[in-house]
Nucleic acid binder design. Sequence first.
DNA 1: GTCTATATAGTGATAGAC
DNA 2: GTCTATCACTATATAGAC
Lengths: 195, 195
Amino acid sequence: MARTHGSHSDITGPRIRDAALRLFARHGYAAVSMRQIAAEVGVQAGALYNYIPDKQSLLFELMQGHMSETIAACEARPKASGALARLRDFMGFHIRFHLARPDAVFIAYMELRNLSPENFAVIEGLRQRYESLLESILTEGIHEGTLAPPDPKLATRAVIAMLNGVNTWYREGGRLTLDEVEAIYWDMVRRAVGG
Amino acid sequence: MARTHGSHSDITGPRIRDAALRLFARHGYAAVSMRQIAAEVGVQAGALYNYIPDKQSLLFELMQGHMSETIAACEARPKASGALARLRDFMGFHIRFHLARPDAVFIAYMELRNLSPENFAVIEGLRQRYESLLESILTEGIHEGTLAPPDPKLATRAVIAMLNGVNTWYREGGRLTLDEVEAIYWDMVRRAVGG
DNA sequence: GTCTATATAGTGATAGAC
DNA sequence: GTCTATCACTATATAGAC
């Protein structure tokens, strides 16, 4: 844990980000000090500044990295044929991808107000880009005649809000398996926006 | 704004809570100092402690007050006959009540982790009590045969998550009136959990 | 690349005058 | 009931030794 003077670690950078991710998620960006992050990594606070220019940049890079990975992973999936199947796939992707990264998801939603205005604009743009991936499935479904949401924009927001909720309560070993949760949500979503 | 020595205000207590509510919502509990709150009210920081024992109690009382008011207002409504009508009424109540208090709603969701363990337990209990008001509508609907959610517990969480989302994007004067938003969400919810 | 030490500023909370 | 002044800490960030 603690590190002696002059000892070198080649992976200090990633370890700083990991520690910050965990601590920011648990206590909040404003409540976490650079000293706490340094202590988790096993260095002194001053050493952090060899890897990051300041605390704000650390938060921004965590959020930007998460949003970019989310978009990239979503776009890298094989594309099913038909909007209904693509909607089903999107739901499964969203639930599982987000459940696997609870800290990053939590930060991306909770710490928006702690971003500088310029950084906020970047993250907000990425969030909208991700939402548009779902919205385009819904509009394709309308054209196909397989989906009929009352309003594609609001349905997009409603579905994402529903799915995000899963992260706040789902725990492995609970009443329902993840497959069951997914099936139940798919049932509700299909009925809500189906044709 | 600034107040001269010895000047007395009979409503300093409520003004402290108003200022704290606004500042906590905008910048986050941990990022707001007692001096900032005092400056908003127009007193010095020391004067705050005539009204609150400490900063944590201030946060707790804001959240407890909001949750209690929400539950009381929800229970005070006239009870429509039939689960379908009661579900429709609940949705309208939730959307409008929450849109009218964006700061309190924001704090109630974002600052849970800044509560002491004992305070957290109280707020979490109130949150569950509010959710149970919706869940009992769904289970009543199942017995009536008018509603058929795939799972009442998950449907409760899904509907509340959907509705809470409205607070994050709805702005008066936007593309849709509040009546239209309500109608669209009602359409989706009725299809998702209807019989 | 990490250390120690420090500059500069701010924190929550309290004491005692008025 | 509010003020001023203060205590004891803590904060981010930087400088310079090694």
